[in-house]
């Protein structure tokens, strides 16, 4: 398998299908084959996963390690605005903040990306041109995904054509929960093809919406299904369903990407999104990344936070570390 200069996996559709066949051990990739493979994955011990996540959350990260963690979190943030009330002006101000989160501190890195709805991609692309900050678009009838495949693909094509660097798609949870795995797989493959159409290379993040998947076993199965269908990233949630990202769910997904790389040699990223509001929480995720998946994932190319208010808290903590005084929300931008 080859990787591009940005470190993203760039498997051809044939490679993806071939690897799916070889991992599942089936030539047909129909519902029965997927069921055999996905239900054959080892079950997740819920109590164990919760316990492991709780244990990882107790690590104490201080001083220089904390300073590194805070800067790394800033670099990993997909600064997100996904509201019905979004305006071009709000997207532009968010873009400015993503490029220079701390305008009076040159040592503060830029965020990884700005994540917006489809129709605001042109605004974000214009605002971020030449800055290195990526534009991510949620597509495929986000957040429910309840639209025909044709509509979802058109949605994706529009975002890619408008210049989105990354596409956050949702899976059809209804199909997944009722066992129509082939349909979910085909959806992801089709969206991936749109991301790569016309010589473009938009990076595909597949949202599992773990809050609707009910069990950790399902999270593990959905993770494998998405990775085998060619996802560049697996993402926990849309942020529109509660519970959104939780540490145990992220641990299960990190185990999946680790095992997937061990088996296929392909590295897939993870993006927890929704509900991560404080630096303290985000640092727990970094600890989990390091301990579960490994330090290879401690990079914005392989781990992202989907968040809006998290960045403000990280900036306040950075200032606290720099000056020794506790900071207040009056000193950071609102959104």
């Amino acid at each position: 398998m080859s990787t591009t200069a940005t470190g993203l996996s760039d498997r051809s559709p044939a490679d993806v299908a071939e690897s799916a066949r070889s991992v599942t051990g089936s030539t047909s990739l129909d519902d029965a084959a997927w069921r055999r493979f996905l239900h054959g994955l080892p079950g997740v011990d819920r109590v164990g996963a919760d316990g492991r996540a709780a244990m990882l959350g107790t690590r104490s990260i201080k001083t220089t390690a904390k300073a590194w963690a805070l800067d790394t979190i800033v670099r990993m943030v997909d600064l997100t605005t996904l509201e019905g009330a979004d305006t071009p002006g709000k997207v532009r101000s968010l873009a400015a903040k993503a490029v220079r989160p701390e305008p009076n501190d040159a040592s503060c890195p830029s965020a990884a990306a700005v994540c917006v709805y489809n129709d605001l991609v042109p605004v974000a692309v214009e605002a971020l041109a030449g800055t290195g900050v990526k534009v991510a678009a949620v597509a495929t009838a986000f957040p429910s995904g309840r639209a025909s495949r044709a509509v979802r693909l058109a949605d994706t094509r529009e975002a890619v054509d408008a210049g989105a660097d990354e596409i956050d798609m949702v899976i059809d949870r209804g199909a997944f929960l009722s066992g129509r795995y082939e349909q979910v797989y085909d959806d992801i493959v089709a969206v991936r093809a749109q991301c790569r159409a016309g010589g473009r290379h938009a990076h595909l993040k597949v949202i599992l919406e773990t809050g609707e998947l009910a069990t950790y076993d399902n999270v593990r199965r959905a993770s494998w299904l998405a990775m085998l269908a060619g996802a560049d990233f697996i993402k926990t949630s849309t942020g529109k369903v509660s519970p959104a990202a939780t540490l145990p769910v992220t641990v299960v997904m990190l185990e999946a990407v680790r095992d997937f790389r061990a088996q296929t040699g392909v590295q897939v990223g993870v993006k927890p999104a929704g509900g991560i509001r404080t630096s303290k929480d985000a640092i727990k995720y970094l600890v989990a990344v390091n301990e579960v998946a490994g330090p290879d994932w401690l990079d914005p190319d392989w781990f992202r936070f989907g968040a809006s208010s998290l960045l403000n808290d990280v900036l306040m903590q950075r200032n606290k570390l720099a000056t020794g005084a506790y900071w207040g929300p009056d000193y950071v931008t609102v959104d």
Binding site: G324, A325, Y326, W327, G328, P329, D330, Y331
Partner: peptide
């Protein structure tokens, strides 16, 4: 001292 320097006070 930390309360005196606290920006949100």
């Amino acid at each position: 001292p930390p309360l005196a320097s606290h920006r949100d006070v």
